[in-house]
Simulated scan of single mutants.
Amino acid sequence: MAHVIETAANVSDSGALFEALTMRGKLMDLTEQSHDAALLPNEEGGVPRAARAALACRMAKICRQTGLITHYQALLESYGADADPHRLADPDATPGADAPRLAAMVAYVDLVTRSPKDATKADIEALREAGLIDADIVRLAGLVAFVNYQLRVTAVLSVMGETQ
């Protein structure tokens, strides 16, 4: 079974890249487990699964990673047609003043995805001020960290696959 990253990077089922990833099967399995923990947690807390999928899709769109856009769009669609999470997947859409919690989450996601070095303690405080509790801030930060890791690994594997 191919992992999300391998599928998103369009890694063929033979060749040097496939063999290298197979040799690092434990790492790929752990990455898949991290995907499930970040996107499909047993305890959603105040960051529902549909919102996680939408935010992950948004990050993939910001980074123009087609394979992960496809993956996260399908995951998002599996949750139904709720307009709010689908709207969050669009990097050009931002929640209005009537949704300060979502607006703060989107601002954090966008900042850390586009310019992680610019994130400060004040950005975490903005999440608190918008009503996120510490456990949900940790959930959101974990999601953002994992998806950005996944985006970078997928991008590298995509380029490596093209050169085979």
Score class of each variant (00 low, 15 high):
residue 42 N to A: 13
residue 26 K to I: 11
residue 113 T to W: 05
residue 2 A to R: 05
residue 54 A to G: 03
residue 61 K to Y: 05
residue 151 L to R: 08
residue 94 T to A: 13
residue 9 A to V: 02
residue 99 A to V: 04
residue 154 T to E: 05
residue 110 D to M: 08
residue 159 V to T: 13
residue 46 G to Q: 12
residue 89 A to C: 06
residue 148 N to R: 02
residue 51 A to K: 04
residue 46 G to H: 14
residue 142 G to R: 02
residue 91 P to M: 12
residue 7 T to S: 14
residue 53 A to I: 07
residue 90 D to S: 14
residue 109 V to I: 12
residue 150 Q to I: 01
residue 132 L to P: 04
residue 146 F to P: 03
residue 127 L to Y: 05
residue 145 A to H: 12
residue 141 A to E: 13
residue 118 D to S: 15
residue 123 D to K: 11
residue 74 A to P: 09
residue 126 A to E: 11
residue 106 V to H: 00
residue 8 A to Q: 00
residue 50 A to M: 08
residue 9 A to M: 02
residue 93 A to T: 15
residue 111 L to Y: 03
residue 44 E to V: 15
residue 74 A to R: 12
residue 98 D to M: 09
residue 117 K to F: 02
residue 85 P to E: 09
residue 47 V to F: 11
residue 118 D to H: 12
residue 66 T to H: 04
residue 88 L to D: 01
residue 57 C to I: 07
residue 161 G to V: 08
residue 124 I to M: 12
residue 12 S to N: 15
residue 73 Q to S: 15
residue 83 A to Q: 10
residue 9 A to I: 00
residue 142 G to T: 11
residue 38 A to F: 07
residue 50 A to W: 04
residue 52 R to P: 03
residue 9 A to L: 00
residue 42 N to W: 09
residue 34 S to L: 12
residue 65 Q to D: 06
residue 107 A to P: 00
residue 55 L to I: 10
residue 6 E to S: 15
residue 149 Y to V: 03
residue 131 G to A: 13
residue 117 K to E: 09
residue 6 E to R: 12
residue 9 A to E: 00
residue 52 R to Q: 07
residue 115 S to V: 11
residue 60 A to F: 08
residue 59 M to W: 05
residue 45 G to L: 00
residue 162 E to W: 01
residue 103 A to T: 11
residue 63 C to G: 01
residue 133 I to S: 13
residue 112 V to L: 09
residue 93 A to N: 14
residue 114 R to Q: 15
residue 132 L to E: 03
residue 48 P to L: 07
residue 29 D to Y: 00
residue 75 L to N: 00
residue 155 A to R: 11
residue 103 A to D: 01
residue 37 A to S: 07
residue 136 D to P: 03
residue 83 A to I: 12
residue 54 A to V: 08
residue 77 E to N: 15
residue 145 A to N: 15
residue 139 R to K: 10
residue 82 D to P: 01
